[in-house]
Design a protein around this nucleic acid. Structure first.
Lengths: 115, 115
DNA sequence: GTTTAATTTCGCTGTTGGTCGAAATGACTT
DNA sequence: AAGTCATTTCGACCAACAGCGAAATTAAAC
């Protein structure tokens, strides 16, 4: 339990992972869309996604050549759900997060978002 | 805000700091008592304490040669209070934590605890 | 099957962070 | 003021980690 909580805190103490989590709260996005929004290399994005997935925060869904990621809303893990809610409440007004979400919306409009 | 949350998560993603926080939730302890309970060097304990203090989790109180640390129960910081409560709920039954608290109790009995 | 495109994995680099021992600081005692 | 004890600071070490580019993998399209 303690070791799990420590792992979760570690995973959440990275800016890009928090940005990804907040993006996936509202959108279903593929790796290259996240790369465009975050402005980091695709290999780094992929690594962050695998870390978030390992802990159960997000799930992936293959669609042709693309892999779409979204929040694991079906999770029964109380700790994960609690911390996700905590983040949503406390990062909702953050400029960086709002800007990220606007970028995601523009991407979805351009590409006929599948949500 | 986001940077602050990241800092807090970083601080909480260390086993010894969590153990210290849980110990100070129930006890007022000095550095050498924490060293005895945690089994790490005094310089390491001191560093962890300064990190926890910088973020507002704990306060110190000088008493002669000793420096006693305790939880900053007067904090008005919603984030800190929320996460402390979260930890208390989720680490309460952890073996390591229970064992630490027992050790602290024994120390307090031996030395006529000042609480 | 070959090509093309998206993603993951791998190897590397620079940075951060936990730990220790030793030195420095602070505070009481004699 | 000299000595002793608790604590903090300093310097060094090693491990963990975010980041990148290149190679490997996967899947569709031709």
């Amino acid at each position: 339990m303690m070791n799990n909580i420590i792992k979760i805190f570690k995973v959440l103490s990275d800016k890009n992972r928090l940005r990804i989590l907040m993006l996936l709260t509202k959108n279903k996005l593929c790796v290259c869309e996240l790369r465009d929004i975050l402005g980091i290399t695709i290999s780094t994005v992929s690594k962050h996604l695998s870390i978030l997935k390992d802990l159960g925060f997000i799930i992936d869904e293959k669609d042709g050549k693309w892999v779409y990621y979204s929040l694991n809303t079906a999770s029964r893990d109380i700790i994960l759900n609690h911390l996700l809610l905590f983040l949503q409440i406390n990062l909702h007004d953050e400029e960086q997060i709002k800007s990220d979400l606007e970028k995601a919306n523009r991407l979805c409009i351009n590409e006929v978002c599948k949500m």
